[in-house]
Design a protein around this nucleic acid. Structure first.
Lengths: 243, 243
DNA sequence: CGAAGGGTTGATCTCTGTCAAGTCTAGTGG
DNA sequence: CCACTAGACTTGACAGAGATCAACCCTTCG
């Protein structure tokens, strides 16, 4: 194992001090020198909802870490049909090293802030640090697992199951191990109905109906159309077909 | 770039001499010493159709290269619903380095022959050869792209489009750039109807009906239920929504 | 020959999509 | 301050694509 000096070294760029990505994200593989080098070329910025971050088939010039917000990866058919093929949250890495684009575009699902740096800087770092490539590899495998979970959902689940699965995805993401005892949770939907529909392979109307069904069954509680309250997570989980 | 001695070196294990994986697969990243080391622990063998190669959630002890045949990666729901989440063909690598299983199992779709070696041997090689990890990383990214293409298909396509897309997948795979001028092709389906249905998120009956529809429209020709003749690939491609 | 596996075809049902109207909220401008 | 509009969401009526149930064909194999 390589020495991981960065943790105890005080010379960490100010930019990175409070950044999640430095621990859980790809930057965790860098030592303080590399971090300083990277941060010199880095640009932190906020983007507006529905901004296109990466156009399909465009050459990618920048890579980013997501500091805050939710990014949706979408695929579009010529006639306008759309499918969300991935959601990326906080310390996720955004970009496609070593690979041309294949028709996926990235859009901010709401307010998002990013930490971006030029493609060639990252590639230089990858060459000198196998550990960094290993991190990227692991993120790719994680995304692959998520994609396959979604494939089972898209191909074989009913509408209610899909909606429940989506809600459980958010629950699991917001509640990483902590609060295991509390069986209830409350959170805001990061996506509007149209996006949820594109995520689940349904129409807006069907999504709406299934949410109403879950609400009437007492499985969830909806405030302002955006805030969800789950009084008993295990009930929701059962509908999602927890496995 | 690392020196790639293996191409011109005559001391290549007999086992590997005629193997596709040595060029296009992961083994292409190894020099002849590493190849010899690996081949010492390697076991080539054939497996019967529908054999389970990797059980869902089992600890993986072996990795393999696919020498011949088609392997399906499947996900199963408790009530028996099933979804094929990936197909792997000839020089593909089979296994999940650095990652516990997540409910995917691998099965031979027909007669398959594999070249297997123990987990720890590969992991040792990965440690000394960053190029090998890079290859594995690239295969993961390729699989991720395929998974996302499938997600669009599963979530947003109609039954005919799905079947046409599946056939085009086979066409593209069997016809890598060559024979670009010939607009027709003939091939055997590597999957039976039940597997095609699990791949497309449909039922057997619907798959059968859509194939009949394509046959009656003159887009394809079916012999013995297994051999497909496509007289005009562009017609098929148009139905699949080629993009 | 009979049984089993793979495939097709038909009749019917149902879930989800489509079309259309309506609610609620926030924002704009007179 | 109120009318007006636009966007996000819901609800209802209806239609249609695909699922389900069932019969049937064909080939293979003991």
């Amino acid at each position: 194992m390589t020495e991981r000096q960065d943790i105890h070294n005080s010379s960490i760029p100010v930019l990175c001090k409070s950044c999640e990505a430095r621990h859980r994200g790809v930057c965790g593989a860098l030592n303080s020198d590399q971090l300083i080098y990277l941060s010199k070329h880095t640009h932190k910025g906020a983007v507006q909802p529905d901004t296109e971050l990466i156009a399909a088939d465009s050459k990618i010039e920048n890579y980013s870490n997501i500091i805050f917000g939710t990014v949706k990866l979408t695929k579009l058919m010529p006639d306008g049909r759309q499918q969300i093929v991935g959601l990326q949250f906080s310390p996720d890495f955004l970009g496609r090293p070593f690979r041309r684009e294949t028709g996926v575009s990235a859009e901010a699902a709401g307010p998002v802030s990013l930490c971006s740096f030029p493609k060639n800087i990252l590639e230089k770092l990858v060459k000198e640090s196998p550990e960094l490539e290993h991190r990227l590899h692991e993120q790719a495998l994680r995304e692959l697992d998520e994609a396959r979970d979604m494939m089972l959902m898209l191909g074989r689940m009913t509408a209610v199951e899909k909606v429940a699965t989506f809600l459980m995805l958010l629950v699991k993401h917001l509640d990483p191990e902590q609060d295991d005892d509390s069986n209830s949770i409350r959170f805001d939907l990061p996506l509007k109905r149209a996006d949820i529909a594109d995520f689940l392979g349904l129409t807006i109307e069907t999504v709406s109906r299934q949410m109403t069904k879950l609400r009437k069954a007492g499985v969830i509680d909806i405030e302002n159309n955006r805030t969800i309250n789950v009084p008993d997570i295990s009930r929701l989980s059962a509908i999602a077909g927890n496995f």
